[in-house]
Amino acid sequence: MNNSANDRRGAVISAGFGLAGQISDVFWRKPVILLLLMLTPPLLWLGVVYIGSLLALLAQSFFSIDEFSGLINYHLTLKTYGELLNPANLDIILRTVLMAAIVTLASVIVAFPVAFYAARYARGRWKALFYLGVMLPLWSSYLVKIYAWKLILAKEGILNWFFELTHLKWLLDAYLAIPLIGGNSLSVSYTGTFLVFLYVWLPFMVLPMQAALERVPANFLEASSDLGATPWQTFRNVLLPLALPGVIAGSIFTFSLTLGDYIIPQIIGSSRLFIGQAVYSHQGTAGNIPLAAAFTVVPVVIMGFYLWMAKRKGAFDAL
């Protein structure tokens, strides 16, 4: 019968979803259960594996190595941190931080026009080409890229050949003669290390920057120009402050990646150590785990300080 109560009920509530359907119903009524189910595994992972290992590392840095036997002394002490202040270790820290800062600054400068063009003007096929161009370097092996750069920068490499071809070799030689940033060839100089860092981390700056610039409405720029601001003034007073969260996000990538990398300076550069390499050599055969741990704490502290400064300067106000 059409009018029976059961048929009427079926018209209102569709049945037949089985057990899976009933589980979905429970989730719908109590969304907290679903949230717990979804979040517990990653939180456990993060909590135990990540935070746990970080704490273990931190603990290690408060031990010290026994001068006599080379064994680790499991008494809490700040001696290992004191060792960080040795001239040689301080050199490593300063060298790394300075490089990271310069690489970050340079990537902001190089990435901005690219990101700005992509965010404001590129459409359709050009936009796809932009993404391809920026992402392509990320797809090929990191090592392959660095070896390729070694070939470009070597004394008998592509760049040198190009300078010779254009009779500008004197320019390169004059540059390489500058102490500190120069060297026997580009590939054994800080300049080479810098160039490769810049190349490898640039996509990590371009992408967040482009995302941030895309969120700045076009009429903000017109409004600024309308109120008498030259393009440069518009850039300084409107575009940069509004794109700052993207710049900060990108700089966190480029800065921390440079701080931690130990492969690029090993292949390109003058063999002077960076923090990552120092960690690698101290934790290896040397068995000086406390000093290695203390070295790893350095970038963590620097990044914490950097974020705190950025927050104080209002970098996240426009979020």
Partner: peptide, 15 residues
């Protein structure tokens, strides 16, 4: 930026 003309934008474009 060199025209002595100002605009009130449709969605105001306040910074």
């Amino acid at each position: 930026y060199r025209r002595n003309v100002n605009t009130v934008f449709q969605d105001y474009a306040l910074f």
